Amino acid sequence: MLDGRMQQEKESVFYQLPVMALTDADVQKQIKHMMGFIEQEANEKVDEIDSKAEEEFNIEKGRLVQTQRVKIMEYYEKKDKQIEQHKKIQMSNLLNQARLKVLKARDDMITDLQNDARQRLAEIAKDPENYSVLLQGMLLQGFFQLLEPKVTVRCRQQDVEMVQEAVNKNIPIYREAVKINIVVQIDTVRFLSSDICGGVEVFNDNGKIKVSNTLENRLELIAQQMMPEIRVKLFGANPNRKFLD
């Protein structure tokens, strides 16, 4: 557009020149006039280039700013996710630690309860009447579990006399029940440890099969059987448990 305008100006100047010869002053004047148009066109070109360069600069600057903005947002979004993940991991660890502490406290309570029950076992043998009845039941159960014609009974040294009485009472009961005779020998060489609160151990003839009916063993069996009920009584029902058997 500028080029066409300049060409028109040049042609206009050319056609305005008189046919007569020009003086030096007229020539200088015409030259200045043409230089003015050239300078104006150059300035307009410069302004156009500057404007275009400014526009391209702003576009590129906007693109770079947007690109960096997206990168920054992605960076902090990633950081937020890492922080959130770290929080979840820490929370999970804290919850697991809390659960472990609760489970340990519960196990400690159960252990204390069992220890207290074991300490009370010693009181059972201090009541001869009830203890003798208990020995009879333990011995008879051992006989029925073995179903052997000859058995050996091991007990505490201080219980030998009471165990012998229980054996004498149980033999007729056993014979009547299974229609088989039984020979019972009380081991008077090896006794149960003095740490045992009471009860008996019944062996077959060769000693390879044993029925342990000590008070401690009976307590352990009862504790295993009643542990779910004990836990419910102490800590309440487990909400995560769907089945009770």
Rank of each mutant, 00 (worst) to 15 (best):
D3C: 10
G4P: 06
G4L: 15
R5M: 14
R5K: 12
R5E: 15
Q8E: 15
K10I: 15
K10E: 14
S12K: 13
S12L: 12
Q16N: 11
L17T: 07
L17H: 01
L22M: 13
L22A: 08
T23H: 06
D24I: 04
A25L: 10
D26F: 07
D26E: 15
Q28Y: 05
Q28V: 13
K29L: 14
K29H: 09
Q30R: 07
G36N: 13
I38R: 14
A42E: 13
K45A: 09
V46T: 14
I49Q: 05
S51I: 02
E55C: 03
R63C: 02
L64S: 04
V65A: 07
T67E: 01
K71H: 10
K71D: 04
Y75M: 07
Y75F: 13
E77D: 09
D80H: 12
E84I: 10
E84K: 11
Q85H: 10
H86I: 10
K87W: 13
Q90Y: 08
N93Q: 13
L94S: 10
L95R: 14
Q97W: 02
V102T: 08
V102D: 06
R106D: 04
R106Y: 05
D108T: 08
D108K: 01
D108R: 00
I110S: 04
T111D: 15
N115Y: 01
R118F: 11
I124T: 03
I124Q: 05
K126Q: 12
D127I: 03
E129C: 04
Y131Q: 08
Y131V: 11
Y131G: 09
Y131S: 12
V133Q: 13
L134H: 09
L134D: 07
L134I: 09
L134A: 10
Q136C: 08
L139M: 14
Q141S: 12
F144Q: 06
F144H: 02
L146K: 01
L147D: 01
K150F: 01
V151N: 02
V151E: 00
R154E: 07
R154S: 06
E161G: 09
V163T: 13
V163W: 04
Q164P: 00
N168L: 07
N168R: 12
N168Y: 00
N168F: 00
K169W: 00
K169N: 07
N170H: 00
I171V: 15
P172H: 06
R175N: 04
R175Y: 00
A177Q: 06
V178T: 09
V178K: 08
V184S: 06
Q185G: 06
T188S: 11
V189H: 04
F191R: 05
F191A: 05
F191K: 08
L192H: 06
I196L: 10
V202Y: 03
V202E: 03
F203S: 02
N204K: 01
D205S: 07
G207V: 03
G207Q: 02
I209S: 01
K210I: 05
K210G: 00
N217M: 07
L219N: 02
E220D: 14
A223Y: 12
E229H: 11
I230A: 10
R231D: 04
L234P: 05
G236V: 10
N238Q: 09
P239D: 11
R241G: 00
L244G: 02
L244H: 10
